[in-house]
């Protein structure tokens, strides 16, 4: 290894002191480090913690599902795309966990909230935790989730809490790319081969009912989400499935499928193996 290579690895490890590390491990410096974090009067703390936590949980769980595509996606560019989308969501989750922790004032930081809560304490929507299924399933899921989250963050960009509003505003630009990506795949697959269209129809039939939970969690998003979905389905030559209510838990109340426990066991295992360690 040349000395240049040595330098690269050194700088990743500890070349700059103790606060410069990359996207792995625990014990990062507070992502809201150096941000003015006073909660404005009129924002009720308990409700605000719940809101930030729910948004963070949706993002963390969805990011973990996207990461599970790595090494499995149909092409390299797609892996890079899904990893990037997951990274955006992970970034949003970190800031939202930090905001929730500060507002709560009980000393829980982003690690405590992401790694040391049990499944029943998570507030993500069920759709985010469902297994990936085939690629069509994942793209339908991404389309539903990103369309909904974009609508939700667009609203929250006007929130009286300047920290949440800033996270939301930045998230809007990011989510616009995510939704575009999912919409383009929906069209490519829906209006593609007989097989790809069949898989899209199956994925839609299975996932379409989960919109109900999204609208229950954020009723104001319904109109926008429905309009965008109709536009995508039309371009993809797909039909919206009939509205069949399914029995599902309510993620916002902590009622989850067994899939969340499995996902969290994997996500939290290393941090829980040695809770005192920083890595």
């Amino acid at each position: 290894m040349s000395s240049d290579d040595d330098h690269v690895y050194l700088s990743l490890a500890e070349g700059h002191g103790d606060d410069a590390r990359w996207a792995f491990g625990t014990g990062f410096e507070d992502p809201l480090h150096g941000v003015d974090t006073t909660l404005p009067a009129g924002v009720e703390a308990e409700a605000h913690v719940a809101l930030c936590l729910a948004l963070a949980d949706d993002a963390l769980v969805a990011a973990q599902r996207l990461a599970q595509w790595i090494t499995l996606a149909p092409e390299l560019e797609e892996e890079v795309a899904l990893a990037n989308i997951g990274l955006d969501l992970l970034g949003q989750a970190r800031l939202l966990y930090a905001r929730a922790g500060q507002t709560e004032g009980a000393g829980r930081d982003e690690d405590a909230l992401a790694y040391f809560r049990d499944p029943a304490e998570f507030r993500n929507v069920i759709l985010a935790e469902l297994p990936n299924g085939d690629f069509a399933h994942s793209m339908v899921k991404l389309l539903l989730l990103s369309t909904w989250r974009l609508a939700e963050l667009t609203r929250l960009a006007e929130h009286p809490d300047p920290v949440l509003a800033a996270v939301a505003r930045k998230g809007v630009s990011e989510l616009t790319y995510h939704r575009d990506h999912a919409a383009q795949w929906a069209i490519r697959l829906g209006d593609g081969t007989e097989e790809s269209a069949r898989r899209m129809r199956e994925a839609l039939a299975e996932l379409w009912p989960y919109r109900a939970e999204l609208y229950a969690a954020a009723p104001e998003t319904r109109e926008e989400v429905e309009a965008v979905l109709a536009q995508v389905l039309d371009a993809a030559r797909l039909e919206a499935p009939a509205e069949t209510p399914v029995s599902m838990g309510r993620g916002r109340d902590g009622q989850h499928t067994e899939h969340l426990a499995e996902l969290l066991a994997e996500l939290q295992s290393v941090a829980r193996a040695d809770p005192e360690a920083t890595w």
Partner: peptide, 14 residues
């Protein structure tokens, strides 16, 4: 930050 999840921000700060 450029992107919310940009892992380079902590590095830049340091």
């Amino acid at each position: 930050p450029t992107y919310t999840g940009c892992p380079a921000l902590a590095e830049m700060r340091a």
